[in-house]
Amino acid sequence: MVNFLKRVFFVDVLAGLALTLKYTFHRVYTEQYPTEKPKLAERYRGAPRLNNDPETGETLCIACDLCAQVCPEDLIVVGSERDPDTRKKVLTTYTFDTSRCLFCGLCQEICPTNAIELTQDFELATYSRRNMVWDRTRLEQGWDRIDYGADRETASGRESSRYERKTG
């Protein structure tokens, strides 16, 4: 009998609706993403950066090539030459292909000088594939995402018409 009454009066459904109603007056969980950037954890592995020594401004990288060897995707290319005076290796070029990166963090783990680092920056979308290969300048100075015009000059000479329209 009780069960029958419960069925007639939709007790099971109303219990669910009561819960929904309770949350109508609750704090809103939504993050306002593009206007407010979320605060990511310190360890987050996002866009790569090649660190410079904050005092001298020289690169921390000693061109040991360990990061390139440990990378599962072989996407780091370290170019170096031997300084004829000091007999030390000097970094010349460094490219990092973010389109193939797994963001596994093995490169930053193995780097003896903390030169390569994956930062909390997570906005990596671009308008062309070429733009996803980061050269040394971009790795060191960061990526000026707003100024698409500058990208066009450095990264490639040929861009799609959609791109042209965007930059106006």
Partner: peptide, 10 residues
């Protein structure tokens, strides 16, 4: 996960 491992999904 993000705080400990540095990534959320992978």
């Amino acid at each position: 996960f993000e705080a400990l491992f540095g990534a959320r999904l992978t």
